[in-house]
Design a protein around this nucleic acid. Structure first.
Lengths: 185, 185
DNA sequence: CGAGTATTTTGATATACATCTAATTAGATG
DNA sequence: CATCTAATTAGATGTATATCAAAATACTCG
């Protein structure tokens, strides 16, 4: 379900969505610093800072080197940049909700409004109506030309009010008409 | 305390640090969508989605237009880009922990280890010792040259173990020495 | 090895907030 | 105006997690 890319970006945001952690990153931006040092700067206890640093380390935004018993943390700018760059990309974001799911809505609507081939009623909302219309227009062959009678017959198989639906199809630019002849756009 | 810049960036991260909201952004990346549509896509109830959209709108990442009773939301890419760009900047981050606070740590150490002008003990940790040494070197005039006896006397006013401290000052490159003569670097 | 210091881990507490249902508001339709 | 649909708001509940104190671990030095 959730791609690895998605989790990575989500964890990046989670890591930086805390006031203390963002301040830690700020403090490390100018200098590497020890835990106690950060605790003093942020007016927090050492265990709290340690906890935050662990989270930042988990997503690779900071790293540590030991000097005696002192642990000195520093930013990993490459990771910072790489993640921020990814966020900038529309392409990346689009993958967050997979295309498969993209039709879930339409399928639901069709399920709601159809019993077999019969349209129960014409949806009131424009969005839903559009889904039904796109389904309807599939009953027509691309390229083929239809008289109004033929159009009415085809639509009529699915709902009695063929006139309204025909008009809607034109309005939605799914069908085109010229001097009594209809065709798919 | 917290600059407006800081809050802006923090709220940006907070807004995107939730799985559902990140998916919403993903869904809106390819298309504008209604509340109900998003609810179907994410398998959430409409009120939940509404709640998330309100948060995203608050930070300016999405905006809305009404069409009948339907509210259609869309991404505000300019805001997205502007905020993400800001995050990339080291300069921005450095302002998160203000410079004023930057000395808090050093002041605390000095308070901990000094009683008046007297150094209670030489800090064991390198970091703390360095702070004390930087304070000590301030007792010397820049440019002036000192004999070892003079150096010992000055340091001796603050702590009996002038020999250790003198060596440390050299080692930390705060004082320089050549043929028995010392000066500030 | 024993004492001291820096850090981390553990456990407890409190707050923030994602989610849901139910109730309300607002627009459209007949 | 009554009704229907879409959205939002209010209220309730459960989960996640920031924080701290206390205990455990790791390293240094005499």
């Amino acid at each position: 379900m959730a791609s690895v890319e998605f989790s990575k970006v989500l964890n990046f945001f989670k890591a930086l969505s805390d006031e203390s952690r963002l301040k830690i990153v700020g403090a490390l931006a100018s200098n590497e610093r020890s835990v106690e040092e950060l605790a003093t700067l942020l007016e927090l206890k050492a265990p709290t800072v340690s906890h935050h640093l662990a989270k930042l380390k988990e997503v690779g935004l900071v790293d540590m080197r030991s000097e005696g018993t002192t642990h000195i943390y520093h930013l990993v700018m490459s990771e910072m940049r790489s993640l921020a760059k990814r966020v900038l990309s529309l392409d990346t974001m689009e993958t967050f909700t997979e295309e498969v799911v993209a039709d879930a809505w339409e399928r639901k609507i069709l399920g709601d409004f159809f019993v077999g081939q019969k349209l129960k009623e014409i949806p009131a909302s424009r969005k839903k109506r559009e889904v039904v219309l796109r389904w309807l227009v599939e009953r027509f062959n691309s390229g083929k030309r239809y008289t109004e009678k033929e159009v009415n017959a085809i639509i009529g198989k699915h709902h009695p009010d063929f006139a309204t639906l025909r008009r809607e199809l034109i309005c939605a630019k799914l069908l085109a008409r010229e001097s009594g002849i209809y065709w798919r756009t």
